[in-house]
């Protein structure tokens, strides 16, 4: 069941991506289109993923779990403080964001292995802007001062293991 649910989310992500691509020419910073997209992202991703509007969405690379919900806002995996029951060090009543991310990612055949990517530091000026606009405008943080090449990430992806 979970397997199906995760594959379905991957499918939705691909659809959104392909649907928006032809319109990406309209995706300009500070445009009306961005305002509309911000609204859609806030409401849509907000409701489903508790989106924090960091403006640099990596949801599909982190098991469709918003990593900005981690109290330490970690982007590359769990800290060493995860409790034995899998709950958060900081919020003992909450399941660790990264434990959820890993569980989900193992069920995601297409994007699961992107958990191995080394994510760049968050550009805080992107907060409350539209991630879709930022992606198509190529203000993508991964491109920031040659952070991590595609080959590096591919090599890491090969180490992804799902039992």
């Amino acid at each position: 069941m979970k397997n199906f649910f995760m594959i379905f989310q991957e499918f939705l992500y691909d659809i959104a991506h392909n649907f928006l691509k032809p319109f990406s020419g309209l995706f300009k910073k500070n445009s009306v289109v961005e305002k509309i997209l911000i609204g859609l992202e806030k409401v849509g991703k907000g409701a489903v993923y508790n989106c924090q509007m960091c403006g640099e969405c990596i949801l599909h690379s982190t098991g469709m779990v918003c990593s900005m919900n981690c109290p330490k806002t970690l982007r590359n995996g769990p800290c060493g403080g995860v409790r034995l029951n899998g709950n958060c060090e900081v919020k003992p009543e909450m399941k660790c964001v990264w434990v959820r991310a890993f569980e989900n990612a193992t069920q995601m055949p297409k994007y699961g292995s992107e958990m191995m990517w080394i994510q760049a530091p968050v550009d805080r000026t992107m907060k409350d802007s539209s991630a879709w606009v930022n992606i198509y405008q190529e203000v993508d943080p991964k491109k920031m001062s040659n952070w991590q090449t595609e080959e590096d990430n591919l090599r890491l992806q090969e180490m992804w293991r799902v039992e």
Partner: peptide, 23 residues
């Protein structure tokens, strides 16, 4: 870098180590 092999998610800990080595 540090590593904690004794905290969940156990199966991902070695792979997370791979990320640290790559970094």
């Amino acid at each position: 870098a540090a590593a904690n092999p004794f905290a969940p998610p156990y199966d991902w800990r070695p792979q997370r180590l791979a990320k640290k080595v790559a970094a």
